[in-house]
Design a protein around this nucleic acid. Structure first.
Lengths: 148, 148
DNA sequence: CTAGCTGCAAACATTTTGCAGAACA
DNA sequence: TGTTCTGCAAAATGTTTGCAGCTAG
């Protein structure tokens, strides 16, 4: 469970390499979207990218943005979260290792946490049930420190 | 953490009582939808109710079904799950106590599990972070025993 | 050159909503 | 009787897709 810290250029290189390996084409749109995503440390929605591209006059349509997001999920660069906000929330995987989330129902804030014991326990439980775990997501909903 | 086992009539009575308490009206539609839900032991979508009502000639429109579902969530009779299937999945709370889920990416099966240690650990973690936990959801995605 | 990619706009799936008439309390 | 509720249909939301033209390799 070592954590790889990559900078944006290394991440872009890796993406470019994987795109080539799969005989996909490395287009300006894919590059711009990947750059945006690797620059974004945190959670974002597809709409976030669409809007920011519109504002900054960058050239990639909504359709392409959704298509590239799906591509990056398939390639393992992105994961999807669902925080019950009506839209999918993404996060890039190389940003940091697995963590879970508190979601505050009052202010909407999402707080990340990591607990080694919890990870171990999840692994144990999956093993006990002979379930091969690919990914997992624990969401704790409630009220955060500030809102109390 | 004692578990209350209620039969369908007790659940309906409780629903009816809560509806009255809030000065809402107890309409035939609300009754039929609540009956359907309390009879359903497992996960279901709004569409499931809509379709079954159409098939069986029961009288409640889609709009009403969605409205009653929301009402029952607000009142604590229903909880929402999100299993990344593109639609919300519901479950009624009095059915049984809290549990978590394995979701098989191959066959789509959803397997419930409960682990006391896990529940304790979740509580500990929330307390440590001064987060007041209202509800929580652990989803483990991967491949089930049969699909391996 | 040509298969794969893009952008547009339309389709899609699910859920929500405005409004006029119906019906519960 | 007067709110509240219902059903309809339309709107809204978020995402996906068909297709004609563009472009990377």
């Amino acid at each position: 469970m070592t954590e790889k810290i990559l900078n944006i250029n290394q991440e872009l290189d890796l993406f470019r390499k994987k795109v080539s390996e799969k005989n996909y084409r490395y287009t300006p749109q894919r590059d711009e979207i990947a750059q945006w995503i690797f620059n974004e440390h945190g959670h974002f929605s597809a709409e976030d990218i669409v809007l920011q591209f519109k504002n900054k006059g960058k050239k990639a349509s909504q359709a392409t943005i959704y298509r590239v997001i799906q591509m990056m999920i398939d390639m393992g660069f992105l994961i999807v979260h669902d925080f019950d906000k009506g839209q999918k929330i993404y996060e890039h995987t190389t940003d940091h290792s697995h963590h879970d989330h508190f979601i505050c129902d009052k202010c909407g804030k999402i707080i990340e946490f990591y607990d080694k014991n919890l990870e171990n326990l999840k692994n144990d439980i999956a093993k006990r049930h002979e379930f091969v775990m690919d990914r997992h997501s624990l969401r704790i909903f409630g009220t955060c420190k500030n809102c109390n």
